[in-house]
Nucleic acid binder design. Structure first.
Lengths: 200, 200
DNA sequence: CCGCACATGTAAGATGTTACATGATTGA
DNA sequence: TCAATCATGTAACATCTTACATGTGCGG
């Protein structure tokens, strides 16, 4: 049900079409809970059926075409609040890279090293992209965030922004842990190969 | 295909019945890649059909009953080596707790705090249980690991053990990052509530 | 002879992935 | 007028979760 909550949080920033939602999703809350468009549209329909959101046609273009705009309902807001009160369900660990590392004895030396180097690169990119997100929040250049703030009293702005930054900092810490792990691993591999093949 | 690889790595420690595999799974490789029994048994059948493993009946009890024991085939070993050479597919982030934290403005103060406290507890437990795993590896009290080592030349033992410990250390670093994040979050919440309700 | 461990699953449903499909509008 | 963006999905498949189902052997 996290997808549902994620979409609702987006709609608390104001009414949007499915397309807008999908786009905003990918540039904000999607960093915390990813979903492809193909999951978003059907979910919106279901949420409308359950009256968590309200969908209505708005004109589009000149030829009388319409698109559907969605707005969160009172029920939807309650849903968010209830959700926040429920216990988080922790999914059991499933880490492909960790699994591999545990059985590197079946990998060629080059493959093991490549695996960890890739890991390093991957999380370095994560760090960069999350730093970008945090910067955008801090200097208010995130469009959806501006829209959100505009709907709340100014006194609440700091904490609303702070929560988002805090969440991103969590990803940052994870990524940094992964980077440090990969570096340790590369050092370990280095040590093992030099021990096996001492230089003459 | 990680489940498949996980099962194959287990079988490199020696032939086992489905039941043994399931049990050993939960006490070793399952920490890195979780799977319930209901996934394990069908997967074994599929792997047998594809000749990655060999299944044959062995007697059980006194009444001529049998159970099926599985052994990894040459093809299975090749599969493991190929798998290690492939690029890891990184799944996009999906973190319920991070999603919540980002939108704590919709949570009651108590719920937000409870959420982070639970997070802290959860990962403290992870740390303990992983420390246990590492200890078992270091003092050789993990049965499946002993069985594994017995099949390889003594010179390889240190690195085989080291890889497993390295993998667990990754989980440890993750968990420690989560603990630190939760603590930061609790401090943040504390600060926000005292700022909102200054003591008289 | 009773209960726990051994042994082996099935079935239904939720969730997630990947690829494909189609037409309208708008700005250069 | 042509490409990018807007708009909205469907279909097939893989994967994962949860719950249930059933019988044997062995030790006390």
């Amino acid at each position: 049900m996290s997808l549902r909550s994620a979409l609702l949080t987006l709609l608390t920033a104001g009414p949007q079409t499915g397309y807008d939602l999908a786009k905003n999703f990918h540039s904000s809350v999607g960093f915390l809970w990813h979903a492809p468009d193909s999951q978003i549209y059907p979910e919106l329909k279901k949420m409308q059926a359950e009256e968590l959101i309200d969908g209505y046609p708005v004109p589009w273009g000149t030829k009388g075409a319409t698109k559907t705009e969605y707005a969160i309902t009172e029920t939807g807001l309650q849903y968010l609040n209830t959700w926040q009160g429920q216990a988080v369900t922790y999914r059991p660990e499933r880490s492909e890279v960790r699994l591999r590392a545990a059985y590197f004895e079946f990998a060629d030396d080059d493959d093991a090293r490549a695996c960890l180097e890739e890991h390093l690169r991957h999380y370095q990119q994560v760090v960069e992209s999350v730093h970008g997100q945090i910067r955008d929040l801090k200097d208010q250049s995130a469009a959806i965030h501006q829209r959100r703030l505009a709907r709340y009293p100014e006194a609440d702005h700091p904490k609303i922004t702070r929560f988002k930054i805090f969440a991103y900092e969590g990803i940052l810490k994870q990524a940094e842990a992964e980077i440090s792990w990969a570096q340790d691993g590369l050092a370990m591999l280095e040590e093992l190969t030099t021990a096996a093949q001492p230089r003459s």
